[in-house]
């Protein structure tokens, strides 16, 4: 079970959190101008890689804040956590 460093509360058990899928997928500002394929790209297409992945997490049983996490899915190492709207600290 992960020990997650919530950017607002500090280290907490994974059981307090909820995973929210891939991060940095921005909702299109003008959805009506997109083709079916372009909209489907936003709606359905998600990466599932072995290695460094950018994810959204929510401290659902804590401060309820969403934040981003960089995690290596091959060994579950959390490389960094950062607030929504912030640039990832590692590329």
């Amino acid at each position: 079970m992960f020990l997650i460093n919530c950017p607002f509360c500090g280290e907490r058990e994974q059981s307090e959190f909820k995973a929210g899928g891939e991060a940095h997928i921005v909702r299109p500002k003008q959805p009506t101008e997109l083709s079916d394929d372009e909209w489907a790209e936003y709606l359905f297409m998600r990466k599932n890689i072995k290695g460094i992945q950018f994810e959204r997490w929510n401290h659902i049983h804590g401060c309820r804040k969403w934040f981003n996490m960089i995690r290596d899915t091959s060994n579950d190492q959390i490389k960094a956590v950062y607030k929504m709207g912030e640039k990832p600290p590692v590329k």
């Binding site: 909820k18 909702r27 929510n58 659902i60 804040k65 969403w66 929504m84 709207g85």
Partner: peptide, 13 residues
């Protein structure tokens, strides 16, 4: 509530 918070915090801050 979770979904509304999600949009509020991430898409429409």
């Amino acid at each position: 509530l979770g979904k509304l918070e999600d949009y509020l915090q991430t898409e429409w801050p």
